[in-house]
Design a protein around this nucleic acid. Structure first.
Lengths: 167, 167
DNA sequence: AGTGAAACGTTCATTGA
DNA sequence: TCAATGAACGTTTCACT
């Protein structure tokens, strides 16, 4: 993102990666416990974590909760074709801003084909999904929408951190 | 998922929802600070959180980190058409198990059309993407794959918790 | 990067509503 | 049954080495 974080990225060593992995698994792990695994003192872990936070590598401490409590159990992917005039520049940014403002829109990606944008949506039910898609269709610059409705979620994970170093 | 958690779900009150929201924003918020906002004691918050964990509502405490450190910057959606014989039953489960085993596969959803399954993948680059899609195509029961390659990520969030009650 | 001490947070047995 | 209290214990933080 910013210059600092990208400069930082190259400098992540195995200790940093181990700390990140450990905190992903359980962010309540104490500094002492992490330090023990790495044979360093808690204060070293503490300083590393501060650096990772300041550098934007660790965004925040959070929890994972059962998404069904939100009662947003309908997931759909929506491909959007834009009008010619909205394929670049300010009009495109306006379309994107309108999409960003929608609570139901969880992901927005640019793609090349067969759509111009690909969205992921979560709504309470198909009726509300239809309504949201109606609103999206009405956005100036949107030519067509193409909905792929999902019927069963088998796997949905934001990131797999298997690639983070073991020690 | 299990009986206990679904029984629990109906019983979430505003206090629970507020706690979940607060922990989503910052899971290092102290019990005392949350309690102050709700005018209850830290031990009450503590017990609530224990209950939420036991009931499976809170899955775990974790961190969000910058995904670019994994160097998995290529995102693609892949629609899969299954062979007739793999549309139901054991063969379908086998296909799904093979997909679940792939590190690059972050999401798997059943859909009705135009595909049978919809995947979300993350790989280091397009060459590796091609390789993974090759492996997927080779799975017994997979008839065809249809890749939507993304070129820019604009928004990617697992869940928006705007719906969780304020107090 | 480590030490040690003070500040702070969590946990739990007990008590009361 | 549920919440508060308060003390014991563990964790974080930071100035100093």
């Amino acid at each position: 993102m910013n210059e600092m974080s990208s400069k930082f990225k190259g400098n992540l060593d195995d200790t940093d990666l181990f700390i990140i992995r450990r905190l992903c698994e359980d962010s309540n792990t104490s500094l002492a416990a992490i330090g023990e695994e790495l044979n360093v003192s808690p204060s070293t872990i503490h300083k590393r974590i501060c650096r990772l936070k300041d550098g934007g590598i660790i965004e925040r401490f959070t929890i994972l909760f059962d998404p069904s409590i939100l009662e947003l159990n309908t997931i759909a992917f929506v491909g959007i074709e834009l009008e010619r005039s909205a394929m670049v520049g300010k009009k495109k940014e306006e379309v994107i801003n309108r999409l960003l403002a929608l609570r139901e829109v969880l992901e927005i990606h640019e793609t090349l084909e067969p759509f111009d944008l690909m969205l992921k949506l979560r709504t309470r039910d198909v009726d509300l999904l239809r309504e949201v898609i109606g609103n999206i269709s009405a956005i100036d610059g949107v030519m067509a929408t193409n909905t792929i409705l999902t019927t069963r979620k088998i796997l949905e994970t934001p990131l797999k951190y298997d690639n983070l170093k073991e020690v």
